[in-house]
């Protein structure tokens, strides 16, 4: 049960030496199980199912936590590998029962086609420009708003926080017709400005929650000290709080980016003409009623997922420390 309470920083509990070397015994037992898998694979007409299952059981015997994490990692990543696999299939084999990740006759044809036959780059650029603008403005709006919630106990503060939560409760389906009507009446159809404003306003509530949680963990003494030194409140916020909040600001940027990058429902209502489409509309069109090109769709999916994955990986150190909905007492 040590997993329950064994933080990385805690020195390992002293093990009572019972005269046996358990790690080594487990290593040999695990290796034996894996070897059995190898034997069975060879015996059973090279059925690699054996080595995979028994190999994993061997790992479970040897290092159980690694076995569990490896198992879950596979669950997380396998569907992604499948998308890559579909994108590499030759035209005729899109519907196939093949389980191999690199399909037979792998080709990058679909990747070439998505760029040459579709205006894919244009879609990506549209999305990117909207997304970056939304993320930047969203962070600024949320950063100052959250500061107000964190540092002042003004009348309306508590209802305000609950109100932010309430905005998350509105069923998306009920927004479509009103947004359509508003957009049409304001003449914003096909206009990315309307879309950006809608995205910013939907991203702000959650962003404020995260940032407020993070500001709460920063002692107010720091700003007070700065204000004694002659800064005004906003200068203290700018010079002290914002730099200290880099992790949470990155997370908020990341979330806003992800939300705007992949949004579909509102974009579908607002953007009618293919010249202003975002990639989610374009890719959806590839597998709609009119045309079903799974290869191109998969290739496009791989391309649009890469930037988000890179962003996530790049900021993953902040992901753990920046996502504070409520501070842990320390």
């Amino acid at each position: 049960m040590s997993v329950l309470t064994q933080p990385a920083s805690l020195p390992p509990a002293r093990k009572i030496d019972r005269g046996r070397n358990w790690p080594q015994i487990r290593m040999y037992a695990g290796a034996a199980v894996a070897a059995l898998g190898l034997v069975l694979t060879v015996v059973d007409q090279m059925n690699i199912g054996w080595i995979i299952i028994l190999g994993w059981l061997g790992l479970l015997v040897w290092k159980q936590w690694h076995a569990i994490l490896a198992f879950y990692s596979v669950i997380s990543i396998y569907p992604v590998l499948r998308v890559i696999s579909v994108s590499l299939r030759p035209g005729s084999g899109l519907l196939s029962r093949d389980l191999a990740i690199i399909p037979t006759g792998a080709t990058i044809e679909s990747y070439v086609k998505i760029f040459t036959e579709e205006t894919f780059l244009h879609w990506v650029w549209n999305t990117l420009s909207i997304t970056l603008a939304v993320s930047a403005v969203g962070v600024v709006v949320a950063a100052t708003g959250a500061y107000a919630f964190s540092r002042w106990r003004f009348p309306g503060r508590r209802p305000g926080l609950i109100f932010l939560l309430t905005t998350q409760m509105i069923p998306a389906g009920m927004m479509i017709i009103p947004i359509y009507v508003i957009v049409a009446q304001l003449g914003l159809t096909d206009n990315i400005i309307g879309l950006m404003l809608a995205y910013i306003s939907t991203a702000v509530p959650f962003s404020i929650w995260i940032l407020k949680g993070y500001y709460d963990t920063i002692p107010p003494d720091l700003e007070e000290a700065a204000m004694v030194d002659g800064c005004n409140r906003m200068e203290a916020f700018w010079r002290i709080i914002l730099p200290l909040s880099t992790p949470a600001l990155s997370i908020v940027f990341l979330f806003n980016f992800l939300a705007a990058w992949s949004e579909f429902l509102v974009a579908k209502v607002v953007l009618k003409s293919p010249t202003v489409w975002t990639w989610s509309l374009g890719l959806n069109d590839l597998i709609g009623t009119f045309n079903t090109d799974w290869g191109k769709y998969a290739a496009g999916s791989v391309f649009v997922t890469i930037p988000v994955l890179l962003l996530f990986t790049w900021q993953s150190k902040y992901l753990i420390s920046g996502l504070t909905l409520g501070g842990v007492k320390s």
Partner: peptide, 11 residues
């Protein structure tokens, strides 16, 4: 493990 989170929902 965070990969599912990073993939756009429609995909």
């Amino acid at each position: 493990i965070i990969i599912p989170w990073a993939i756009p929902g429609i995909i």
